[in-house]
Write a protein that binds this DNA or RNA. Structure first.
Ligand SMILES: [Zn+2]
Ligand SMILES: [Zn+2]
Ligand SMILES: [Zn+2]
Ligand SMILES: [Zn+2]
Lengths: 133, 133
DNA sequence: ATATTATTGCAACATTGTTGCATTAACAAA
DNA sequence: TTTGTTAATGCAACAATGTTGCAATAATAT
């Protein structure tokens, strides 16, 4: 049992076809994808419920991060684990093409009074993206 | 028919008990409220569907604004139409008491490249609020 | 090859949001 | 006050989204 354990409950993760397919779809995607979009893009590789559960695991394993758009739609994007990676980055939501994309280079500046403890944030900017402009 | 018209389609709004009740509940609330919370707090004054429709009208009439939490839960807050009011302000989401509150005095600074057209944003910070700290 | 157990599929359910339509009630005008 | 117009409501029916329990399956360590 001498192996790397990447979760605090000591539960061993497994690489299943559902998981690798979903992660590959997310990695190849231009934008963040919703559960509904993943359901069609994975082309029946697994059940609807499995997608929910795989996404939860991928988020816990830090391979995918969750984005909530200004409309309240939940989307998922593969993490870019190059330099300066953080889940807390800005996301842009295009009104025209309806895509949600990561903007990792822009760091929002916010100054709250120090009786607030800030742990994370969700910052989604809505407008027209460069492609649609 | 000489009266004020506050919507672009020239449709006359009416002050119904459902609408005034919901707006009052929101005005008296400490935090933003979800549809489910409003359903219980209005105490059966109207149907579940009516709440959806009234909220839509209140948002269009600029009396209420919509907030999407980091969990994707949609909440509504009465607008504070005092000085410097803007719907685009930061919202704080407390992990402990689960409340979502407006933070109108803090203006987030963000610098996107100018091929983006920014129209609005949804900025929700998650952590522990002053009361729970 | 085998044992362990994480993962899956399926069914059933819960929650959230939408639509059509007949009825009701708010409000302007008489 | 009464009346006519139509915005607003209630209800039923539906669609979409998310959750849970459990038996069957399959990934991995040994
Ligand atoms: Zn676009
Ligand atoms: Zn991102
Ligand atoms: Zn709190
Ligand atoms: Zn607010």
């Amino acid at each position: 049992m001498q192996q790397c354990c990447n979760n605090i409950f000591m539960k061993q993760f497994r690489n299943t076809t559902a998981k690798t397919t979903i992660l590959n779809v997310l990695k190849n995607a231009e934008a963040a994808l919703s559960h509904a979009e993943l359901l069609t893009l994975t082309n029946g590789v697994c059940d609807r419920v499995t997608i929910y559960r795989v996404l939860e695991r991928l988020v816990n394993e830090d391979n995918v991060h969750k984005v909530v758009t200004s409309d309240g739609i939940i989307k998922y994007a593969a993490c870019n684990h190059s330099a300066h990676h953080s889940h807390d980055h800005v996301h842009f939501n295009c009104e025209k093409c309806k895509t949600t994309t990561c903007i990792e280079m822009v760091l929002p500046v916010i100054q709250l009074s120090n009786d607030y403890t800030v742990k994370s944030f969700n910052f989604t900017v809505t407008g027209i993206c460069p492609k649609c402009n």
